[in-house]
Simulated scan of single mutants.
Amino acid sequence: MATNADITFYDIASAPPLKTFAPNPWKTRLALNFKGIPYQTKWVQVLDIAALRKGLGIPANRTLPDGTPMHTLPMIEDASTGKIVGDSFEIALYLDDAYPDSPKLLRQHTAGLTAAFNAHMDEVFTKHLGLCTRASFDPATVEEVMATFAKRFGVKSLADMQLSDEQREAMFVSFEVALGELSKAYHHTGGTADRVWRTTGTAKEQSQQPPPNRQNACVFLDGDEPAYADFIVGAWLKHFEGGMDPKDWERVCSWQDGRWGKLGTVLNRWSEMK
């Protein structure tokens, strides 16, 4: 295993005090802490990410709506192997391969399934980012950063994306439906027959109840220990917790018998900033 913090973890700098706030860096921080691999964090301002990746010879890992490259974090640099990895999912695969004696992130023969789950969760949560109204960026550069993100979303200004009260409430209903579907995975049950009528409201009597043999489902997807899929969900939950108004986050934590607040609390064990 790495010693003396051979791994440098490049994370996005927040407003003081420095902390992880974006979902993909959260995936990597949870993974590193879970595996117990010594690392040090190097905080990078949003406006410096492209220059950093280019300087290290790491290509952009996303593309803007107009087709131009988009450079993002996380990224890790492992001095013990000379490897630089610049994508959260690829980082998880690398850590399991390079440090086989530490706890496994992905269980045997699940890389493809986990990759699909990762893409689906990114889509589900990104669809509801309008519920996050609190910015975590450094105040010194926030205006330039917001302009950069407006470009990413293909709009002139982020103000163009602000929701009306009616739109916001509709997004809350949609988000509860989406997390309700996700909760079925945690209860090891399927079925989508309730999708149509579920979206018409959020009354308690409309909430699907898990079958009797799954009432005691674990806080994690499979078993008493987390897998990388749990960190994918947890990373997004932590992003929403930090970006939502506290009252709105409390609302989310009340859904599905408090499942999402409980998961976030359990994952605090691997949330240390190093």
Rank of each mutant, 00 (worst) to 15 (best):
K156M: 10
P38R: 00
G82M: 02
A79G: 07
F220L: 09
K127L: 15
A79I: 06
K156V: 14
S164G: 11
G190H: 12
R259S: 00
D138N: 07
N213M: 14
R62G: 09
V145M: 05
H71D: 14
Q208A: 14
F21I: 10
K184H: 05
P69C: 07
L56G: 02
A159G: 13
V196G: 07
A5D: 15
I91V: 12
G86S: 11
R251K: 15
W26A: 08
P74W: 03
E250V: 05
K274T: 06
Q209S: 14
Y10I: 05
T202W: 11
I91D: 08
G112H: 02
L73W: 04
S157Q: 08
T202A: 12
P74A: 09
G258E: 02
D96K: 00
S164D: 05
Y228A: 11
V196Y: 08
D160V: 08
K19A: 15
L163N: 00
V173C: 08
V124M: 06
D96G: 01
S271G: 10
P139D: 04
V266D: 04
I91Y: 07
V173L: 10
W43Q: 08
I58Y: 06
P100M: 03
S80T: 02
G82H: 01
C218M: 10
T141W: 07
Q45A: 15
D11F: 12
D11C: 10
D122C: 01
N216R: 14
G112E: 09
S80F: 05
A60Q: 06
S136G: 13
I76D: 11
P100E: 05
T126H: 12
A170D: 13
T68R: 10
N216V: 04
A178M: 10
G86L: 13
A150N: 02
E90A: 15
W43D: 10
T3N: 13
G57I: 01
L267Q: 03
G201M: 05
T3R: 06
L32H: 01
R134H: 14
A203Q: 14
S164Y: 00
D230R: 00
V177D: 08
H120F: 10
L237F: 04
C218K: 14
F125I: 01
V142Q: 05
Q256W: 08
T8D: 14
C218D: 15
R168C: 09
A178K: 02
G242R: 01
D257Q: 13
A140N: 05
A13T: 02
Q208F: 13
A50K: 14
W43G: 13
E181K: 12
A119S: 11
P100S: 09
M121D: 05
T192E: 11
P210F: 06
S14A: 11
M75Y: 04
L163R: 00
P69I: 10
P69E: 05
F175E: 08
M244G: 03
S14K: 03
P226D: 00
I49K: 07
A22V: 13
V266H: 05
M121T: 04
W260M: 09
C253R: 04
